[in-house]
Design a protein around this nucleic acid. Structure first.
Length: 241
DNA sequence: GCGACAG
DNA sequence: ATCTTGTCGC
């Protein structure tokens, strides 16, 4: 059932999706337009899923945080049916519709968006963080919890010290970093989304980690929020379409 | 047939 | 991502 669905997806959309990725890839700008110092507000983006009446439903949460005060400035979310299956390398096509819908509701204009997933660390340098930047028109950063192996290149485990990292170099190019955000905890995989450079992404990500998670606070809060929202919608059994 | 596989 | 109990540690 699910397998056939994914097969149909491949037949009908993968070529078109690849073409779009290559088109956008040529517009990536890893320039230093923002640094940890100039950062005022940042947003975390994440999604959660569940089944309702035999269909996949998802909820996207965007949490905007005041970096200095560590306070939540704004929270928005979107809910809707999910039609695109998850296919490694094409996560953005599955999650972007709800992300864009939620972003439209934002009153604040975050200086940077942090994503649960890769950015430049991707087969075509077009992970969800990078892809989303073209719709948000803001700097983005990718933070993945597990490693996406590209061209059979494994990552080198960083030292077990907070802030320690190893660059992920593929064919002589730095795609991202295996980053130890907390001691004694598995590393996360950091990469530029767009409109930002890796060093700034690193500084910003590290400045947003506390004792509660290996993930930067904005992403962690968005993650918690999606779970709370899912619980709410499942209990009330209906969401606005 | 087997392994890979962001979320 | 999601399905799930207990369990180790700050």
């Amino acid at each position: 059932m699910q397998v056939n669905h994914i097969h149909d997806f491949h037949l009908n959309h993968e070529d078109a999706f690849l073409n779009l990725q290559m088109e956008l890839k040529s517009q990536i700008q890893l320039t230093k337009s923002i640094t940890a110092d100039s950062l005022k507000t940042c947003a975390g983006v994440d999604l959660a899923y569940w089944e309702e009446d035999g269909e996949s439903v998802g909820v996207c949460s965007i949490v905007v945080l005041d970096v200095n005060g560590r306070n939540i400035i704004e929270k928005v979310h979107s809910v809707g049916k999910i039609n695109v299956p998850y296919v490694p390398g094409f996560l953005a096509f599955r999650e972007l519709p709800l992300i864009i819908e939620a972003a439209k509701k934002l009153a604040a204009e975050p200086d940077v968006f942090l994503f649960d997933g890769n950015g430049y660390l991707h087969h075509n340098h077009m992970g969800i963080a990078t892809h989303a930047s073209f719709f948000l028109n803001k700097p983005t950063i990718g933070i993945a919890k597990t490693y996406l192996r590209i061209k059979q290149t494994d990552f080198e485990m960083p030292d077990d010290r907070v802030g320690a990292y190893t660059d992920i170099v593929i064919d002589g190019e730095v795609y991202g970093r295996a980053l130890r955000t907390r001691q004694g905890v598995k590393p996360v995989f950091l990469s530029c989304g767009n409109f930002i450079d890796l060093e700034s992404s690193y500084q910003i990500a590290m400045s947003l980690v506390n004792q509660e998670s290996r993930l930067p606070i904005p992403v962690r809060l968005a993650d918690l929020e999606t779970h709370a929202l899912r619980k709410y919608y499942q209990e009330n059994k209906k969401f606005a379409e």
